[in-house]
């Protein structure tokens, strides 16, 4: 019986030794992956070359800069330490904003998901708060928290909070009653049900919320820096804009792009690991 079934399943246990067909198949996949990579690099080279060529020929470099000028500026900033000193401020504010917003959003999402009455009572108020464009709160946060890092943390936390809160809430409401009842019968306390059933089951929703909210945290911080600050990547971009220094503006944007991409990549890895039980 067992032999039949495990053979039918296949994914559970493998035979161990790889056959020729398997090796050929895997080599094919590997080759395709390689082709994609090479094409990506080629595309980037073509794009950057065109930009470099067009700058000064078709378009005025005063407005669009050029890859070499942007690269030069980034190199300069790296050497004189400016890059790190501004980037660290922005990253710190983003990280704090993300963790504070996500933490509160997750906790309240669990609470509201658990107590349906509370959720029903608070529903219109939450909807009202959610409808405020959070960036409109930025001036208020600057009055409250000053032009330092605190106001930027507040802006990004307020954005992240709602995304994570709403996703966690939806995730908790989505948990199957069957799992809750069966674990209760097995002896789970309320806390154990939360830990072993509700949270893991809501993970898919929560992760989606986190993934969406990380770029928002970055946006919140940078917008806060645009408005009023004395450090950070947003500050650099705002300053450079004032001086019509497009080289620096582009350099700032490139930094934000790279940072955003790295964070997204990390989140994707985390998601893959946390949701490895799904197909």
């Amino acid at each position: 019986m067992q032999v039949d079934e495990s053979a039918a399943v296949g994914t559970g246990l493998n035979t161990g030794g790889s056959s020729k067909a398997v090796l050929a198949y895997e080599a094919g996949l590997e080759q395709r992956k390689m082709m994609v990579r090479v094409s990506q690099v080629l595309f980037a080279i073509v794009f950057l070359s065109f930009w470099q060529w067009a700058s000064g020929r078709i378009i005025d470099p005063f407005f669009v800069s050029s890859p070499l000028a942007v690269g030069g500026r980034l190199y300069e900033w790296t050497l004189n330490g400016q890059l790190w000193s501004h980037l660290s401020v922005t990253m710190l504010a983003t990280a704090f904003g993300f963790f504070i917003g996500a933490g509160i959003g997750f906790a309240l999402g669990l609470l509201f998901g658990k107590f349906a009455f509370l959720a029903e009572v608070m529903d219109p108020f939450i909807t009202a708060l959610y409808s405020i464009p959070k960036l409109a709160l930025a001036p208020l946060f600057i009055i409250w928290f000053g032009i330092g890092i605190e106001s930027k943390i507040a802006v990004s936390a307020s954005i992240v909070f709602f995304v994570v809160f709403l996703n966690t809430f939806a995730g908790v409401r989505d948990v199957s009653q069957i799992y809750i009842h069966s674990t209760q019968i097995m002896g789970a306390s309320n806390w154990a049900v939360l830990r072993t059933v509700v949270i893991p089951s809501a993970t898919a929703w929560v992760i989606t919320g986190l993934k969406v909210s990380v770029p928002y945290a970055l946006v919140g911080t940078v917008i806060g820096e645009f408005m009023s600050s004395n450090r950070g990547i947003g500050y650099i971009i705002a300053q450079a804009t004032g001086l019509f220094d497009t080289n620096s503006v582009f350099a700032g944007i490139v930094i934000l792009m790279v940072v955003g991409a790295i964070i997204n990549g990390l989140l994707k890895k985390t998601e893959g690991w946390l949701l490895r039980w799904k197909e």
Binding site: I178, Y179, H181, S182, T183, M186, G187, A188, S189, A192, T196, V197, P200, S201, T203, W277, K278
Partner: peptide
């Protein structure tokens, strides 16, 4: 139950260990 009540996010051993963990 009639429905599948094994927790999909836990491995087989962790599922079987569940009631023991609770105790």
């Amino acid at each position: 139950t009639q429905a599948d009540s094994v927790l999909p996010w836990r491995t087989v051993e962790k599922n079987v260990a569940l009631p023991l963990e609770y105790r």
